[in-house]
Every structure is written in C-alpha cells, then in structure tokens.
C-alpha cells in the first residue's frame, strides 16, 4: 500500500503540482528573496487559501504595520476580509507584542528574543493554527546585536518550530542579485525547504523567478518557474522558458 504523505497546500496551484500536493505537513520553509520579490504576498496567499479549507493561520509581521499589510491585500482575489474577522487568518504585529512585554522594539537581547519566541509559540498554540508565517526573520535578527546572538536565536527558533505542529513559512531577505539563500547562512539549516524568489535577465529585462532549492520529503525538480505577481490573482507560476543564452548566464553565476 502506498504511503500517503500528508501535505499542506501552498496556495499556488503550480507549486502544489510540483511538490505533489504541497509543503510537507509541519515543515518549516524558508521563503527567501530580495525586497519586492513577492515573499509577503506568497505567504498571505498560503494563509488565506489555507483558511478557505478550514486551516487556521497566523501571520507575524515585524516590519510592516498591520494597516499597510491589509491595504496591500485588498486587490487580491485570494483576500477575504471575512477570514480575518472570523479569526481564520490572524495578522499580528510582533512589535506591539514586544512593546506590551516591555521590550525595546528596536534592540533585542538574547533573553528578549527568547521571551518573544515563547510568546509566539503560545499564541500559535492558543489559536491552534495549522499555518504560521514569520515575516521576516531578517528583521528579527536585525534587532540582535551580534552574529553569535543571531546564531543562537535562529537555532532556538528552529527547535521551537520543530516541536510545533504547524507548517511554517519564514521569510528571509537577501540583497538583490545575490545567490545566497539567507542573510546569515544558518537560516537554511533550520528549514526543511527553501524557496528562492529571484530573477533572471532576459534581453535586458528582469524576469521574476521562483526555484525550489530544497524540499525535504518531496520529489521535486529544481526547475525554475517564472513568477508573476498579478494585482488580482496574486502569485502565479509557470515553467520558465529557457534558452541556451540563458543557461550560459546561469553558469556564469
């Protein structure tokens, strides 16, 4: 009898198809890319489409205030205000939480970050979410003072997420045109999967791309997708058309 793998749909049809149904249930996936590459939209799509199927989700924001996030969502077809009102999608500003905890919102000590992680976990448990997003861990790490603190924090985050039952997306920001998957190069170790939102040059124009770099437990090919952010339909994917010129360029990198 074949083992039916439990998956959590990504909210994007093409991606689900590529990964035989979605992210492995309970996995932690790093969504990495430069600013404006569609990370936040992708995570929102994940949450809202999940909520439609009855899976509750929570989105922790660190950089964008709530009103801005919801305003950006308004045009998208996947967005449904009712899902927020009914508590199926929760968007929580971590800065407000840390303020309530009496933390300095711009600078964290290891203890602060630890306390914040605990809260985050408690909130996820309380809401009983199946889907969790932290946007972004780069912004969280930015508030820590030393590389060592950042390492410790990320590993702690990894262990906290591992014991949680929900499927998690972490966004991570990398400077444009870089081919690193994470700012601190350790985020990738705590994640079961990495999606890289980048771009390729074609005749001088940049084409947005998405590549599945790693996805533990799913048979995926590392083919690139062309990614389109439609103002209505959100993130759309289609296999990237390649030419020999194009391969050459990739080789150069």
């Amino acid at each position: 009898m074949p083992i039916i793998k439990e998956v959590c749909s990504t909210g994007i049809e093409e991606l689900d198809m590529k990964m035989s149904g979605g992210y492995p249930l309970g996995s932690t996936v790093l969504v990495t890319g430069c600013s404006g590459s569609g990370k936040t939209t992708m995570c929102m799509q994940f949450l809202f489409n999940g909520a439609r199927k009855g899976e509750r989700g929570v989105f922790f924001t660190i950089t964008e205030p709530l009103f801005k996030l919801t305003k950006n969502l308004e045009g998208f077809a996947f967005y449904d205000k009712k899902l927020i009102e009914s508590g199926m999608v929760n968007i929580i500003d971590l800065r407000i939480i840390s303020e309530r905890l009496g933390l300095d919102t711009e600078k964290y000590t290891v203890e602060d970050a630890g306390a914040l992680l605990d809260i985050l976990k408690d909130i996820a448990d309380e809401l009983d979410v199946k889907r969790l997003v932290i946007d972004s861990i780069t912004a969280l790490c930015y508030r820590l003072q030393s590389p060592q603190m950042i390492r410790d924090f990320i590993f702690k985050l990894g262990t906290s997420l591992a014991v949680m039952k929900c499927t998690t997306l972490l966004t991570s920001e990398v400077p444009p045109q870089t081919f690193k998957f994470s700012q601190y190069e350790i985020e990738e170790f705590i994640s079961d999967g990495i999606l890289f939102l980048g771009d390729v040059k074609r005749k001088g124009d940049l084409i947005r791309t998405l590549q599945i770099i790693k996805m533990r437990g799913t048979a995926h090919s590392r083919t690139k997708f062309a990614l389109n952010i439609s103002t209505q339909r959100g993130i759309e994917l289609i296999p990237l058309l390649k030419s020999s010129e194009f391969e050459f360029e990739t080789l150069l990198k």
């Binding site: 939480i97 309530r100 306390a115």
Partner: peptide, 24 residues
Amino acid sequence: SIYEQRSKLKLKELIEIGSTGMPS
C-alpha cells in the same frame, strides 16, 4: 519585568492587541 509582565498578560488580550493596534 518582561517575565513578570508575561505572566500578567492574558494571551487572548495580547492577540487582540497585536492584531489591531499600531506600534507606538
């Protein structure tokens, strides 16, 4: 007082505040 605060705050309230307010 982080830990002290933490024990005083009700999780539900915290979620409520966190999903409605603006950070000062």
